[in-house]
Design a protein around this nucleic acid. Structure first.
Lengths: 154, 154
DNA sequence: CGCACCTTTTACGTTTACGTCAATTCTATA
DNA sequence: TATAGAATTGACGTAAACGTAAAAGGTGCG
């Protein structure tokens, strides 16, 4: 039941990376390499963001998958949803100029940048309010620990 | 079935605020006044953050509830979870100095402030990366719209 | 041969703060 | 009295990105 497709049955035996230029890596190595969990890789695949080859039922990731994963992680870092990332990646066409893809990416990026700036403003606001409240609380605490010592027993 | 508690049966007939110093407001007015939904007020009550009086089954909010709601909204604004807000409010004792409450609030606030600052750093980082990517994409787009005009028609 | 280790699929659980019906009741007013 | 406008208590739904079993298959090694 090995179902290895004739053209790409080149996977090594099993475990340790044999030599430098590995063609395929399995999910464990892939996960370690990019600091994600197995679940995450399978999840991304389930969402159509990754499409590793298979050796039977075992996933085999290539350079292409690594490049895609890097993009996913970058997208996540800048706050895109996986859905957005997928939309952008789905427009990729290796045979064209990808103008549409780039335009979409730029459009989404501008909106995301605006969101990030708004978020930053909210956070700054929150920091201000919180600092403010904290100084008030500190004031109240210092008033409570300074005076009442006279009445009660030490 | 009016079950109005003898000491506090002072609610007006029903709708429009009669005079200036209203004692009780119903949920609709309360919601409007603070820009929240009815669902939110009921939810907060369900979570033990609010405790309005009742006229039969109708909730009646007093000055005390308004003060509590203000605190909740402030807490939410600075990023506390409702659970945190509740923990802090639960320590309030109108007969004491509330030192424990203030200390807890200060402690939680310091941690929250740290979280906010970390978030801000992450956002700044994201903004940087995103701006970076955007300029690259713009560059790619300008390259695609400048040269290829020679080969194709129109 | 058996064990440890890697991998697979399936599928429910988690988190937070409500949204969104649905069915019902109450009330004041025209 | 009919109706429109509040209000009530359920109770399921939502979003996002995975976490966490569970049960089972494959395999190189000592």
């Amino acid at each position: 039941m090995k179902l290895v497709s004739p053209g790409e049955a080149a996977a090594n035996t099993n475990d340790v990376p044999a030599e430098a230029g590995e063609e395929f890596v399995r999910i464990g190595e892939m996960a370690k390499k990019y600091g994600v969990t197995l679940r995450t890789l399978r999840f991304y695949e389930d969402k159509g963001l990754l499409n590793p080859h298979r050796d039977g039922s075992t996933r085999l990731y290539t350079r292409r998958d690594k490049a895609r994963l890097k993009l996913i992680l970058l997208g996540r870092k800048v706050g895109f949803s996986l859905r957005d990332v997928k939309q952008m990646m789905d427009l990729y066409d290796p045979t064209g100029t990808n103008t549409k893809q780039l335009r979409l990416a730029l459009d989404k990026s501008e909106k995301q940048l605006a969101r990030l700036q708004k978020q930053r403003a909210l956070i700054d606001d929150a920091i201000g309010e919180l600092s403010n409240s904290m100084s008030i609380v500190r004031q109240m605490l210092s008033e409570r620990t300074a005076a009442p010592q006279a009445s009660a027993a030490g």
